[in-house]
């Protein structure tokens, strides 16, 4: 099976180019396995990966035009030649390895932790099963970056727009019955950029390997703002 992978060596190249490799496909082979085989053929080929089962979120990349995790993408489902590129819009460090700093900064900016005004209880903070259910579809995010790097609004304003990943996380904490910083969180999201650059393009929903829905989370945030503001 033919694989065209993007190559970029910062020491010698001015821009990335595609290099084709032939890989013998085995039954049940995932794209990550194929990339490992390519690495055996050319050990200078670089890409990130770790757990190999869609949990760590390290091997996000652009495959035939769609952002996905290589480890849970079966090569048998892909059209030949398989074109593998780094995440769009991110500075390339080498081959498929990109600089995700801005993505993590946006995550950090939404204060992804529980904030309590009340004194901390001696034991855990209790939560009803119904309130716990509200976090389903939010807490599962693995920060792979597939969504934010597929978002045109994030491409144009990665320094100012939080992007779908960080906004999903923002809603994860707004929706948490144990969190007591709703007002502060909503105030932080005001203005034309952080939240409102989202134009419900929904690329994020399409590419999320965990099947999460950042667009819906963003809608929830807007409605909560409206309820608190009127």
């Amino acid at each position: 099976m033919k694989f065209a992978v993007s190559r970029f060596n910062p020491d010698t190249d001015s821009k990335p180019h595609m290099q084709t490799f032939e890989v013998a496909v085995e039954r049940g082979m995932m794209l990550r396995d194929a990339l490992l085989e390519i690495q055996r053929q050319d050990e200078s080929f670089a890409f990130r990966h770790s757990c190999g089962e869609g949990v760590c979120g390290s091997d996000g990349m652009n495959v035939n035009g769609t952002n996905r995790l290589a480890c849970i993408t079966a090569v048998s489902d892909l059209k030949e030649p398989v074109e593998v590129r780094p995440f769009p819009g991110r500075p390339i460090i080498r081959d498929l390895v990109v600089d995700m700093s801005q993505f993590y900064q946006q995550y950090k900016a939404v204060e992804p932790w529980l904030v309590r005004e009340d004194p901390m209880p001696e034991q855990e903070i209790l939560q009803s099963p119904a309130d716990r259910d509200k976090l389903d579809g939010l807490y599962e995010c693995i920060l792979c970056g597939c969504c934010s790097t597929a978002c045109p609004s994030f491409w144009w304003n990665p320094d100012k727009f939080h992007g779908p990943q960080a906004l999903l996380t923002a809603w994860r904490f707004l929706a948490d019955s144990r969190d007591q910083a709703t007002e502060h969180r909503l105030n932080e999201l005001e203005g034309p950029y952080k939240l409102f650059r989202c134009h419900t393009i929904m690329n994020c929903v399409e590419v999320c390997p965990k099947g999460l829905n950042p667009t819906q989370a963003i809608g929830h945030i807007k409605h909560l703002m409206l309820r608190q503001g009127v």
């Binding site: 005001e190 203005g191 807007k222």
Partner: peptide, 12 residues
């Protein structure tokens, strides 16, 4: 105002 450029504009 900043207020009108975010939520306000969106509602409008």
């Amino acid at each position: 105002s900043r207020k009108l450029s975010g939520l306000g504009a969106w509602v409008l």
